[in-house]
Protein backbone atom coordinates (compact mmCIF):
# COMPACT_ATOMS: atom_id res chain seq x y z
CA UNK A 1 0.00 0.00 0.00
CA UNK A 2 1.21 3.49 -0.68
CA UNK A 3 0.90 6.37 1.79
CA UNK A 4 -2.45 7.63 0.46
CA UNK A 5 -3.95 4.20 0.44
CA UNK A 6 -2.91 3.78 4.04
CA UNK A 7 -4.56 7.06 4.99
CA UNK A 8 -7.82 6.09 3.35
CA UNK A 9 -7.58 2.70 5.06
CA UNK A 10 -7.36 4.48 8.41
CA UNK A 11 -10.27 6.74 7.49
CA UNK A 12 -12.39 3.64 7.04
CA UNK A 13 -12.49 3.67 10.84
CA UNK A 14 -14.13 7.12 10.96
CA UNK A 15 -16.85 5.96 13.39
CA UNK A 16 -14.22 4.81 15.86
CA UNK A 17 -12.18 7.98 15.32
CA UNK A 18 -15.16 10.26 15.98
CA UNK A 19 -16.11 8.28 19.04
CA UNK A 20 -12.55 8.66 20.36
CA UNK A 21 -12.48 12.35 19.52
CA UNK A 22 -15.79 12.81 21.33
CA UNK A 23 -14.47 11.05 24.42
CA UNK A 24 -11.28 13.14 24.42
CA UNK A 25 -13.19 16.41 24.11
CA UNK A 26 -15.77 15.37 26.69
CA UNK A 27 -13.12 14.42 29.23
CA UNK A 28 -11.19 17.63 28.55
CA UNK A 29 -14.16 19.96 28.88
CA UNK A 30 -15.73 18.12 31.82
CA UNK A 31 -12.46 17.88 33.71
CA UNK A 32 -11.66 21.52 33.00
CA UNK A 33 -14.95 22.68 34.51
CA UNK A 34 -14.59 20.42 37.56
CA UNK A 35 -10.98 21.60 37.90
CA UNK A 36 -12.04 25.25 37.86
CA UNK A 37 -14.56 24.77 40.64
CA UNK A 38 -12.24 22.63 42.78
CA UNK A 39 -9.33 24.99 42.12
CA UNK A 40 -11.23 28.14 43.06
CA UNK A 41 -12.64 26.56 46.21
CA UNK A 42 -9.22 25.20 47.27
CA UNK A 43 -7.49 28.50 46.55
CA UNK A 44 -10.16 30.37 48.51
CA UNK A 45 -9.66 28.11 51.52
CA UNK A 46 -5.92 28.72 51.39
CA UNK A 47 -6.29 32.48 51.11
CA UNK A 48 -9.00 32.67 53.78
CA UNK A 49 -6.78 30.73 56.16
CA UNK A 50 -4.17 33.52 55.99
CA UNK A 51 -6.34 36.02 57.84
CA UNK A 52 -8.42 33.78 60.04
CA UNK A 53 -7.56 31.32 62.76
CA UNK A 54 -10.95 29.55 62.81
CA UNK A 55 -10.55 25.82 63.64
CA UNK A 56 -12.89 24.69 60.88
CA UNK A 57 -10.82 26.63 58.34
CA UNK A 58 -7.66 25.10 59.76
CA UNK A 59 -8.98 21.60 59.08
CA UNK A 60 -10.17 22.54 55.60
CA UNK A 61 -6.80 24.09 54.91
CA UNK A 62 -4.99 20.94 56.02
CA UNK A 63 -7.22 18.89 53.71
CA UNK A 64 -6.54 21.30 50.86
CA UNK A 65 -2.79 20.98 51.41
CA UNK A 66 -2.94 17.17 51.39
CA UNK A 67 -5.04 17.28 48.22
CA UNK A 68 -2.65 19.56 46.35
CA UNK A 69 0.45 17.74 47.57
CA UNK A 70 -0.80 14.25 46.71
CA UNK A 71 -2.15 15.20 43.30
CA UNK A 72 0.88 17.20 42.25
CA UNK A 73 3.23 14.57 43.64
CA UNK A 74 1.92 11.57 41.68
CA UNK A 75 1.48 10.85 37.95
CA UNK A 76 -2.02 11.21 36.59
CA UNK A 77 -1.85 7.66 35.18
CA UNK A 78 -1.29 6.35 38.68
CA UNK A 79 -4.25 8.41 39.91
CA UNK A 80 -6.43 6.93 37.15
CA UNK A 81 -5.39 3.36 37.99
CA UNK A 82 -5.84 3.89 41.72
CA UNK A 83 -9.28 5.40 41.32
CA UNK A 84 -10.57 2.90 38.79
CA UNK A 85 -9.08 -0.39 39.97
CA UNK A 86 -8.52 0.20 43.69
CA UNK A 87 -10.88 2.82 45.09
CA UNK A 88 -13.80 1.90 42.84
CA UNK A 89 -12.71 -1.74 42.44
CA UNK A 90 -13.24 -1.80 38.64
CA UNK A 91 -16.90 -2.55 39.26
CA UNK A 92 -18.72 -3.58 36.06
CA UNK A 93 -21.28 -0.86 36.70
CA UNK A 94 -18.65 1.83 36.33
CA UNK A 95 -18.64 4.03 33.30
CA UNK A 96 -14.90 4.52 32.70
CA UNK A 97 -15.55 7.75 30.82
CA UNK A 98 -17.13 9.32 33.90
CA UNK A 99 -14.33 8.04 36.11
CA UNK A 100 -11.84 9.63 33.72
CA UNK A 101 -13.67 12.97 33.81
CA UNK A 102 -13.66 12.88 37.61
CA UNK A 103 -9.98 11.91 37.93
CA UNK A 104 -8.75 14.46 35.40
CA UNK A 105 -10.99 17.08 37.04
CA UNK A 106 -9.59 16.35 40.49
CA UNK A 107 -6.10 16.39 39.00
CA UNK A 108 -6.62 19.67 37.21
CA UNK A 109 -8.13 21.25 40.33
CA UNK A 110 -4.86 20.91 42.22
CA UNK A 111 -2.98 22.83 39.52
CA UNK A 112 -5.72 25.42 39.12
CA UNK A 113 -5.66 25.92 42.91
CA UNK A 114 -2.08 27.13 42.79
CA UNK A 115 -2.76 29.39 39.81
CA UNK A 116 -5.90 30.85 41.36
CA UNK A 117 -4.23 31.39 44.69
CA UNK A 118 -1.74 33.63 42.94
CA UNK A 119 -4.57 35.27 41.04
CA UNK A 120 -6.58 35.96 44.19
CA UNK A 121 -3.55 37.39 45.96
CA UNK A 122 -2.94 39.68 42.99
CA UNK A 123 -6.35 41.33 43.49
CA UNK A 124 -6.09 44.52 45.55
CA UNK A 125 -6.97 43.89 49.20
CA UNK A 126 -9.23 46.92 49.07
CA UNK A 127 -11.70 45.01 46.88
CA UNK A 128 -12.43 42.47 49.62
CA UNK A 129 -12.47 45.21 52.27
CA UNK A 130 -14.98 47.26 50.31
CA UNK A 131 -17.25 44.24 49.92
CA UNK A 132 -17.05 43.36 53.59
CA UNK A 133 -17.54 46.97 54.67
CA UNK A 134 -20.86 46.95 52.78
CA UNK A 135 -22.00 43.92 54.79
CA UNK A 136 -21.40 41.36 52.05
CA UNK A 137 -20.20 38.01 53.38
CA UNK A 138 -16.74 36.65 52.59
CA UNK A 139 -18.03 34.00 50.12
CA UNK A 140 -20.31 36.51 48.42
CA UNK A 141 -17.50 39.02 47.97
CA UNK A 142 -15.23 36.25 46.70
CA UNK A 143 -17.74 35.09 44.11
CA UNK A 144 -18.96 38.48 42.94
CA UNK A 145 -15.82 40.59 43.14
CA UNK A 146 -12.51 38.86 43.84
CA UNK A 147 -12.70 35.61 41.84
CA UNK A 148 -13.81 37.31 38.59
CA UNK A 149 -10.81 39.64 38.81
CA UNK A 150 -8.48 36.81 39.87
CA UNK A 151 -9.67 34.67 36.95
CA UNK A 152 -9.03 37.50 34.55
CA UNK A 153 -5.52 37.94 35.95
CA UNK A 154 -4.81 34.20 35.64
CA UNK A 155 -6.41 33.67 32.24
CA UNK A 156 -3.19 32.85 30.33
CA UNK A 157 -2.24 30.21 32.90
CA UNK A 158 -5.76 28.77 32.95
CA UNK A 159 -5.74 28.46 29.16
CA UNK A 160 -2.40 26.66 29.33
CA UNK A 161 -4.03 24.29 31.80
CA UNK A 162 -6.81 23.57 29.31
CA UNK A 163 -4.31 22.68 26.57
CA UNK A 164 -2.18 20.58 28.92
CA UNK A 165 -5.33 18.78 30.05
CA UNK A 166 -6.35 17.97 26.47
CA UNK A 167 -3.01 16.25 25.86
CA UNK A 168 -2.95 14.51 29.24
CA UNK A 169 -6.27 12.81 28.56
CA UNK A 170 -4.40 10.63 26.04
CA UNK A 171 -3.66 8.21 28.90
CA UNK A 172 -7.37 7.62 29.60
CA UNK A 173 -7.05 4.32 27.72
CA UNK A 174 -5.37 2.87 30.79
CA UNK A 175 -8.82 2.50 32.34
CA UNK A 176 -10.41 1.19 29.12
CA UNK A 177 -11.79 4.51 27.87
CA UNK A 178 -11.71 4.62 24.10
CA UNK A 179 -10.40 8.13 23.62
CA UNK A 180 -8.69 9.48 20.53
CA UNK A 181 -5.35 7.85 21.36
CA UNK A 182 -6.82 4.46 22.23
CA UNK A 183 -8.91 4.58 19.04
CA UNK A 184 -5.80 4.99 16.91
CA UNK A 185 -4.00 2.33 18.90
CA UNK A 186 -6.74 -0.09 17.91
CA UNK A 187 -6.56 0.99 14.29
CA UNK A 188 -2.80 0.50 14.18
CA UNK A 189 -3.19 -2.97 15.65
CA UNK A 190 -5.53 -3.89 12.80
CA UNK A 191 -3.40 -2.34 10.07
CA UNK A 192 -0.03 -3.44 8.83
CA UNK A 193 1.87 -0.28 9.69
CA UNK A 194 1.74 1.87 12.82
CA UNK A 195 3.42 4.84 11.16
CA UNK A 196 0.46 6.36 9.34
CA UNK A 197 -2.14 6.03 12.13
CA UNK A 198 0.15 7.55 14.74
CA UNK A 199 1.21 10.41 12.49
CA UNK A 200 -2.47 11.12 11.86
CA UNK A 201 -3.12 10.96 15.59
CA UNK A 202 -0.41 13.53 16.24
CA UNK A 203 -1.76 15.78 13.50
CA UNK A 204 -5.25 15.65 14.96
CA UNK A 205 -4.02 16.70 18.42
CA UNK A 206 -1.97 19.46 16.80
CA UNK A 207 -5.02 20.74 14.93
CA UNK A 208 -7.21 20.72 18.05
CA UNK A 209 -4.57 22.59 20.04
CA UNK A 210 -4.20 25.02 17.14
CA UNK A 211 -7.92 25.71 17.03
CA UNK A 212 -8.07 26.11 20.82
CA UNK A 213 -5.15 28.53 20.72
CA UNK A 214 -6.88 30.62 18.08
CA UNK A 215 -10.09 30.77 20.11
CA UNK A 216 -8.16 31.69 23.25
CA UNK A 217 -6.31 34.50 21.44
CA UNK A 218 -9.65 35.92 20.34
CA UNK A 219 -11.02 35.81 23.87
CA UNK A 220 -7.90 37.45 25.28
CA UNK A 221 -8.05 40.18 22.67
CA UNK A 222 -11.66 40.88 23.44
CA UNK A 223 -10.99 41.04 27.17
CA UNK A 224 -8.13 43.46 26.61
CA UNK A 225 -10.40 45.73 24.61
CA UNK A 226 -12.93 45.72 27.44
CA UNK A 227 -12.07 48.70 29.53
CA UNK A 228 -12.87 47.06 32.85
Amino acid sequence: MNFWQEISAVLEYHTLIFKGLGATLLITVGAFLIGQVLGVVTATIKVARNNNSNVFLKILNALASVYVTVIRGTPVVVQLLLMYFVILGASPFLNPLIVAIAVFGINSGAYVAETMRGGILSVDKGQMEAGRSLGLSFPKTMVKVVVPQATKNSLPALFNELIALLKETSVAGYITVVDLTRAFEKISNNETSAIVPYIMLAVIYLVIVGILTLIIRQIEKRLQNDRN
Binding site: L134, G135, L136, N228
Partner: peptide
Protein backbone atom coordinates in the same frame (compact mmCIF):
# COMPACT_ATOMS: atom_id res chain seq x y z
CA UNK B 1 -20.95 41.34 61.69
CA UNK B 2 -22.50 41.61 58.23
CA UNK B 3 -25.73 43.12 59.55
CA UNK B 4 -23.72 45.60 61.63
CA UNK B 5 -21.67 46.63 58.62
CA UNK B 6 -24.84 47.16 56.60
CA UNK B 7 -25.55 50.02 58.99
CA UNK B 8 -22.02 51.38 59.21
CA UNK B 9 -20.78 52.56 55.81
CA UNK B 10 -17.14 53.10 54.93
CA UNK B 11 -15.42 55.27 52.35
CA UNK B 12 -11.77 54.50 51.63
CA UNK B 13 -8.83 56.64 50.61
CA UNK B 14 -8.37 54.64 47.41
CA UNK B 15 -12.12 54.39 46.65
CA UNK B 16 -12.04 50.58 46.26
CA UNK B 17 -14.78 50.50 43.67
CA UNK B 18 -15.31 46.96 42.35
CA UNK B 19 -13.19 46.96 39.19
CA UNK B 20 -15.13 44.15 37.51
CA UNK B 21 -18.54 45.77 37.89
CA UNK B 22 -20.24 48.72 36.24
Amino acid sequence: INKYRQEVGMVFQHFNLFNNLT
